[in-house]
């Protein structure tokens, strides 16, 4: 009985409410409606702005990320090119010089290409096998199409004419200038960083 009574009361309450809402909209309630709709529109605008802001925030440092990626690409390429340029086997002088030409451009490439038969023969006769390894390297300057990289290079020279000799190991300081040709970074200059102190 008690449950039924409670149920009744509730139903009465709802119908009461329905009665108060049902009458045709008075000017007052339609005013409230439009205020509510206005607020809803504002809320939607705020949400859209928030979501757009969120999406654009992800690449707030897009340019810096791209530059960092370029720096890393240039460094990897330079290390590999510098090693190539410090590597030559007397058994394959032509192949070695071809690889040098492949990683260079401009006058440096022209100079390598101009290596005459006599010099090539001399290189072959020396019986030396040089192997370059970049110990450490860093990018000094970087633009979209040019770069300067410095590198500490360990060059091991083995003398095949004297198999008992211990290979000589030298550390050299190099500065490499690179330019972007098409989609490849190539060496335009490769120089040892000489001691300049008096």
């Amino acid at each position: 009985m008690t449950t039924g009574f409670g149920h009744d009361v509730e139903e009465i309450e709802i119908s009461d409410e329905d009665v108060t809402q049902r009458p045709p909209e008075s000017p007052q309630s339609s005013g409230r409606r439009s205020v509510e709709l206005g607020l809803l529109v504002l809320a939607v605008v705020a949400l859209v702005a928030g979501v757009v802001s969120w999406q654009r925030a992800g690449d707030h440092d897009e340019a810096a990320v791209a530059r960092a990626a370029l720096r890393d690409t240039v460094l990897i390429t330079a290390r590999s090119h510098i090693e190539t340029m410090n590597t030559l086997d007397h058994d394959d002088v032509d192949g070695g010089l071809e690889r040098w030409q492949d990683v260079t451009t401009g006058t440096l490439k022209d100079q390598i290409a101009a290596t005459d038969a006599e010099t090539r023969q001399l290189m072959a006769d020396q019986q030396m096998v040089s192997t370059g390894k970049v110990v450490d390297a860093a990018v000094l300057d970087l633009t979209a199409s040019t770069a300067t990289v410095i590198a500490s290079v360990e060059v091991t020279v083995r003398n095949d004419a004297d198999p008992s000799a211990v290979p000589s190991v030298k550390r050299n300081r190099f500065a490499a200038d690179l330019v972007k040709v098409g989609d490849r970074w190539l060496l335009e200059g490769l120089d040892q960083v000489a001691v300049e102190i008096k």
Partner: peptide, 12 residues
Amino acid sequence: LVAAAAVAFWQA
């Protein structure tokens, strides 16, 4: 919606 917008701005 306002609460969602606040979350979006905060995440941004």
